[in-house]
Deep mutational scan, measured.
Amino acid sequence: EVPFKVVAQFPYKSDYEDDLNFEKDQEIIVTSVEDAEWYFGEYQDSNGDVIEGIFPKSFVAVQG
Rank of each mutant, 00 (worst) to 15 (best):
V60N: 00
D15R: 09
V30K: 01
S46Y: 09
K13Q: 10
T31C: 08
S46F: 08
I29V: 10
V7D: 01
F55E: 00
K24M: 08
N21P: 07
K24N: 04
A8D: 01
D35C: 13
D25P: 02
F10G: 06
L20W: 03
Y39D: 02
P3N: 06
K57W: 03
I54S: 13
D15K: 11
L20Q: 01
S46M: 11
Q63L: 14
F55A: 00
Y39W: 14
E37R: 07
V7W: 08
L20C: 04
I28H: 00
K24R: 09
Q26E: 04
F55T: 00
Q63V: 15
S46V: 13
F40R: 15
G53V: 04
E37Q: 09
K24C: 08
V60G: 02
A8W: 03
N47S: 08
F10I: 09
Q44Y: 11
K57I: 08
N21W: 13
Q63H: 10
D15Q: 12
E23N: 08
S46R: 10
I54A: 11
G53S: 00
A36R: 09
V50K: 13
S14N: 03
A8F: 03
W38L: 07
G41F: 06
F40L: 07
D49L: 14
D19Q: 15
V6L: 00
F22V: 03
I51H: 15
G64R: 09
F10P: 02
I51S: 07
E34I: 15
E42V: 09
K13F: 13
I51R: 15
E42F: 15
Y43S: 00
D45K: 09
S14V: 01
V60K: 00
F55Q: 00
Q9M: 15
Y43G: 01
D45L: 12
V60F: 05
F22I: 01
D18W: 15
F55N: 02
N47D: 07
E1S: 11
G48Q: 02
Y43N: 00
E17G: 10
E1L: 12
Q44D: 03
Y16R: 15
I28G: 00
P3R: 08
F59K: 13
F55C: 03
G41S: 02
D35E: 06
D25T: 06
I54L: 15
D18S: 14
W38M: 09
Y16I: 12
P3E: 04
Q44S: 10
P3C: 11
V7C: 10
G53Q: 00
D25A: 07
E52I: 10
F22T: 01
I28W: 03
N47E: 07
S32M: 09
V30T: 01
F59Q: 07
F4G: 02
D15P: 13
D45I: 07
F4K: 03
E17P: 15
K5W: 12
V7Y: 08
Q44I: 14
A61V: 14
D19T: 14
A61M: 12
N21F: 09
K5E: 05
D45W: 03
E23T: 06
F22S: 00
E52S: 15
D18P: 10
A8P: 01
V33H: 06
G48R: 03
Q26V: 04
D25E: 07
G64F: 09
Q9S: 09
F40K: 12
Q9I: 15
K5I: 12
N47Y: 08
V30S: 00
E23Y: 05
E37S: 08
F4V: 03
F55P: 03
V50R: 13
K13E: 08
Q26D: 02
F55H: 01
Q9W: 08
F22L: 01
N21E: 09
F4Y: 04
A61E: 14
E37W: 12
E52C: 15
V50W: 13
V62N: 10
D18H: 15
D49M: 13
A61C: 14
P56A: 02
T31H: 06
D18C: 15
G64Q: 12
Y12K: 02
A61G: 09
